[in-house]
Design a binder for these strands. Structure first.
Lengths: 195, 195
DNA sequence: GTCTATAACATGATAGAC
DNA sequence: GTCTATCATGTTATAGAC
């Protein structure tokens, strides 16, 4: 049937996405998922083989979403610098951390090739996407030819991922923004003198 | 197991430090700690009031150690740029992640003011230490006066913390090093022409 | 100080009723 | 498809023997 309303399977996935973001995989129990989804044990084991299978569906969806958001900003208009700036400055729920990046610290996720794959692919994809934009900027003369696309991309993505860590440690999104401004001040192309 | 002339309390703390690093707080059970320390339940509850108390002792020790290591590098000789470079390039067990930074993603650690304090203090301390070095570099003319010490420090520390994320995601320490090289290439003072 | 026994509850999964 | 009952195991803590 073409049930457009929110079915149980859907609620289970969304509840799992929220809990994985808040508490990670090891910190999320099936019981907590079921309570949040308003479902019983039977529903979960009907639609999924168990916790890992449900988590995989949740992680894949989050990964796809994050990649789409990143592409929306990085693929937007403007100069290479402006697109990278837009990525760094895009609105984020900083204190919640990165729903994908945080999974890299989860021992059970990293121990499972299946659960880990979407995490690895997503972060690698964003890294390569940014690297390409930096190379574009070099060709256009906006960035110094001495810069390396892969290196700058890694620094950009690391600043974001590490910014979440600093923000959560200090209890304020300000630390994230401060790091971003620092990186942008280093990356900014020289202002062209008034013509 | 730490069995050579080390008392039980000590073995419990060290086992907890290892497990917090590997699995985080929510992923670490008292049972696992006791097995690794080769101790029984009674020993743990004799020396500590429970899991949170033991974790606090472990986190405090790790925090002190990390601060000492950072000071050893940042307070060493050389120009401001060289000291920051030394911090970024210092030997790390990259794939294990940061034993302090990872705790920022642990919901139970962040929910406890006591457990969270050493994490916040350590990262803030390193950030301010680097900020001071950047300001030194500005006074000496090694860094552009347009740079902001706090901003660069946040970018440096974020690159490290985020570097761990990228490395673990890709399964290789290379991503960490790539990001560090990228940041250093942006931060490097202009080469003085041969005299 | 250290041990084992026990307890109350949570976890992750299965079985079978409806 | 969804529910509740049940189960073996794990978690966190307490009690009391040694």
């Amino acid at each position: 049937m073409y049930s457009v309303g929110v079915n149980t399977s859907e609620r289970l996935i969304e509840s799992t996405r929220e809990l994985l973001w808040e508490r990670g995989y090891v910190g999320t129990s099936p019981k907590a998922i079921l309570e949040r989804a308003g479902a019983g044990q039977g529903s979960m084991y009907h639609h999924f083989t168990g916790k890992p299978d449900l988590a995989l569906a949740a992680i894949r969806r989050t990964a796809e979403e994050m990649r789409a958001v990143a592409e929306g900003v990085l693929g937007g208009g403007g100069t290479p610098y402006e697109r990278i700036e837009a990525y760094l400055r895009r609105e984020r729920e900083v204190l919640r951390g990165c729903p994908i990046g945080r999974l890299t610290m989860d021992p059970d996720v990293m121990a499972s090739a299946e659960l880990r794959a979407p995490v690895e692919e997503t972060l690698n994809w964003i890294r390569r996407r940014i690297a390409g934009i930096v190379e574009e900027g070099k060709e256009q003369g906006q960035f110094a030819s001495s810069l390396d696309g892969e290196e700058i991309a890694a620094a950009v993505l690391a600043t974001v991922q590490g910014g979440y860590v600093l923000a959560r440690a200090s209890g304020s999104p300000a630390a994230f923004d401060t790091g971003v401004r620092g990186l942008l001040s280093l990356l900014a192309p020289p202002r062209s003198p008034a013509a």
